[in-house]
């Protein structure tokens, strides 16, 4: 390998994108999830990040004419096992556009620790070409680092060095094979007293009325290319005098930072058919 081989000239016309399966959400992301880079979805539990992940696993199989990558997807989970029933339910809506059974092209592997993930990454060299994988979802990255590291300067240093190692390997494979890499991340509450460091477009992220920030801190924020934040707001609907006024959950998705996107957000709903952006 020579240094001149790393030059790409002329530049490609556009970065390939993976559709989210909804035109409004695609518009928010300038066409979809970009290939060759790392996209992170940050949300508190129950907002819909796993739902969106499942949708992407199926969308990746769509032919390129429909915005997909006509390829298989790999799902690495560290929190919950793959919600298979839900995936099956969603797959019905994708079936008509595909020649094969979509479930046959979703590969699933559990992750136990950050070291386990690092051990698994070199295997991508073999797995990706063999099964024509073009999308890797890691749900969630935060769970790999919960508990294993203590809150001392030395341990935090070891942890951030691990972040950069994982990110570098993921970026390497993303570039080599043109993979779309999607990670989900949890949120942590922000203490009122602490002076919180602002990262990205909004000064404060709120979900369910609480101030939150993405887990894993500043050094991890350097490890992703695009960060999206999903949040929910509870809203009372119906008449005021009723004690049991219906609570309605509204969900939103926003670009926290991305090299190619402005600061925009979009409301979305989760239906049986999947996750869809709505205009309100």
């Amino acid at each position: 390998m020579n240094p001149e081989d790393l030059l790409r000239h002329p530049l490609p016309a556009e970065t390939p994108k993976l559709t989210l399966g909804c035109p409004l959400l695609d518009r928010l992301l300038g066409g979809g999830v970009p290939c060759g880079t790392i996209t992170e979805i940050v949300a508190e539990s129950g907002t819909g990040k796993t739902q969106l992940s499942l949708q992407l696993l199926l969308a990746a199989q769509l032919p390129t004419s429909r915005g997909g990558l006509s390829a298989s997807s790999l799902y690495l989970h560290s929190e919950f096992p793959l919600p298979f029933r839900r995936l099956h339910q969603l797959s019905i809506f994708y079936r008509p556009h595909l020649q094969h059974n979509p479930l046959d092209h979703v590969f699933v592997e559990p992750l136990h620790s950050a070291d386990h993930l690092l051990d698994l990454l070199p295997r991508l060299d073999f797995l990706v070409p063999k099964f024509n994988v073009k999308l890797i979802v890691i749900d969630s990255i935060a769970a790999l680092f919960r508990g294993e590291f203590e809150n001392t300067p030395l341990e935090l240093k070891r942890r951030s060095s691990m972040f950069f190692k994982i990110s570098s390997k993921l970026r390497f494979h993303a570039r080599k094979f043109g993979l779309a890499v999607v990670l989900t991340n949890q949120v942590v509450d922000v203490m009122e007293s602490s002076d919180n460091l602002r990262i990205g477009n909004s000064a404060a992220l709120c979900s369910s009325g609480r101030r939150v920030c993405p887990a894993l801190g500043l050094s991890w924020a350097n490890c992703v290319n695009t960060r999206l934040f999903m949040w929910r707001e509870e809203e009372r609907v119906g008449s005021e005098d009723e004690n049991f006024g219906n609570m309605q959950t509204r969900r939103f998705i926003r670009v926290v930072f991305a090299p190619h996107l402005p600061d925009t957000f979009c409301e979305f709903v989760i239906r049986r058919e999947g996750l869809f952006g709505i205009n309100r």
């Binding site: 490609p12 016309a13 970065t15 300038g30 880079t37 970026r171 993303a174 570039r175 090299p259 190619h260």
Partner: peptide, 8 residues
């Protein structure tokens, strides 16, 4: 880092 986007 892979953050250079052609479209941007």
């Amino acid at each position: 880092e892979g953050s250079f986007m052609v479209e941007r």
